[in-house]
Amino acid sequence: MLQLSLILLMIGLGLYGLATSRHLIKSIIFLNVLEAAVILFFLRLFYLPEGTAPIITSLGGEAVDPLPQALMITTIVIGASVTALALMMSIKIYHQYGTLDWKILLEKEDNQ
């Protein structure tokens, strides 16, 4: 229960950061926090206190469910791809406008 509520707090932290931080890089970092929290949440739901890794040779006790682990690899790859793209975009935005502040970026849009 404690672990679960900590993970839920971490999800909340990611969303809170996205909803409050004004810096673009911080937004990307909080997106990664959110994603890590989601991965943790998924794996925590299938945690077995005495579970073993789902590999045939080591199957002693009860093996944990292998499906979440397989799905989470996919999610990690997605997260890496999105982060790479977003960071490259922010480099280009910085080159263009000299700032990474969402608010200043928005004001510039109004002037154009």
Binding site: G14, L15, L18, L24, S27, I28, L31, L34, V82, L85, A86, M89, S90, K92, I93, Q96, Y97, L105, K108, E109, Q112
Partner: peptide
Amino acid sequence: DGPSLRAGIYYIVFNTA
């Protein structure tokens, strides 16, 4: 160009979240 970059990063980060 600049405006499309801003819209692009807004789109990609928000939709991924």
